[in-house]
Amino acid sequence: MLRIEHIWKTFNVGTVNEKTALKDLSLELKEGDFVTVIGGNGAGKSTMLNAVAGVWPVDEGKIFIDDIDVTRLPEHKRAAYLGRVFQDPMTGTAANMQIQENLALALRRGTFRFLKSGITRAEREEYQEKLKVLDLGLEERMTSKVGLLSGGQRQALTLLMATLKKPKLLLLDEHTAALDPKTAAKVLDATERIVGRDHLTTLMITHNMKDAIAHGNRLIMMYEGNVIYDVSGEEKKKLKVADLLAKFEQASGGEFANDRMILA
């Protein structure tokens, strides 16, 4: 479903801040894979997701989604294949537009937009049904501006928007990191349900190692712009947080795992 072949990305070339964020990264996801991604700060997790989403072009290498070469496609064209949820709840929705208008924008992802009505009556009923699944009472507030919602509600809505039109690949960039634990669990639960229901191929970055183990059928650990550990199936189910920490220490040459990873 997703094939990343030897991609490289360096930021701030020629300055003191030059950083090679992705080093010869390759990764392949099969259809229906739910892959969790962990790694310390600066390991290249978000960079990898942004490379797939096409936020900027990669320096070298190729990216295929469903055997379509998307390496040179601009962000808005790749969006036809992707559903994305971001870390910052403000990023995924349009605050000054209504809940139903946001959903209508998402439903038209990958279609040619012209002078047809921006939202139809039939759609509204569909949205109402789908919002009920989130169990946040949003179905009663379809015409409210999204800016009035809380962070958790906005993330749940973004998740719904990302999956409203079944994407070939769902990209979740630490989408629960900015939420309080209770809300985070709720959003993660909704993620699990939607991904399971629609059999979505998913890449989910998380800082929480327990979540990384508990969800998905495969786990990868990144370090300095590459995948250093890749585990799936039965082996993944038996994983413990301690194993991951040991792996991380081993990979980083004894350097102690950073605070955020331990606390997680």
Binding site: A53, E75, H76, K77, A79, A95, L105
Partner: peptide, 15 residues
């Protein structure tokens, strides 16, 4: 309207 409101989100939605 979406572009004026949130350009990142708009691109993610294929605009």
């Amino acid at each position: 309207r979406a572009t004026g409101c949130n350009a990142n989100m708009s691109r993610a939605q294929g605009i």
